[in-house]
C-alpha cells in the first residue's frame, strides 16, 4: 500500500506501523462516575468493519507522525490521511 502522508507525500506502507481503530484517540475521562466501564469499552470493544474504517498508523521509519487514515477494508482504498494531532484537536482533545 502507499500512504500519502500529509507532510511528506506518498510513502510505502512498510515505513509505518499500525495500531488500530482511531477511536483510541478518545481516551475516556478518568474522573467520570462510570470511568471503569468507559475504559473497558474504550480499550476492548471494537467494531469489525467491512468497509470504511478510520485507523491509526505511526510513521515509525519516517517523521514519527501519528496519522488517522480512512481506509476501505474491502478494497484497501485510502480515502483520506490526516495528522492525528489535527484530528484529535478537531475532535475536542486538548491538554
Amino acid at each position: 500500500m502507499i500512504i500519502v502522508h500529509p507532510l511528506l507525500g506518498p510513502r510505502d506502507a512498510q515505513e509505518f506501523t499500525y495500531l488500530g481503530d482511531a477511536s483510541l484517540i478518545h481516551r475516556p475521562d478518568p474522573k467520570a462516575d462510570d470511568a471503569a466501564e468507559n475504559f473497558y469499552e474504550y480499550l476492548y470493544q471494537r467494531d469489525n468493519l467491512a468497509g470504511e474504517h478510520r485507523e491509526l498508523w505511526f510513521h515509525e521509519q519516517g517523521d514519527r507522525s501519528w496519522l488517522v487514515i480512512k481506509r476501505n477494508t474491502l478494497t484497501h482504498d485510502i480515502l483520506s490521511v490526516e495528522l492525528a494531532s489535527d484530528v484529535a484537536r478537531r475532535e475536542g482533545r486538548s491538554k
Binding site: T17, L19, L24, I25, R27, L56, F58, E60, R64, S65, W66, L83, A84, S85, D86, A88, R89, R93, S94, K95
Partner: peptide, 14 residues
C-alpha cells in the same frame, strides 16, 4: 511509540 501516541493523539495541545 507509546509516548508519541500519548502526545499526538491524546493530548495534542501539550
Amino acid at each position: 511509540r507509546h509516548l508519541e501516541f500519548c502526545r499526538q493523539c491524546l493530548w495534542p495541545n501539550m
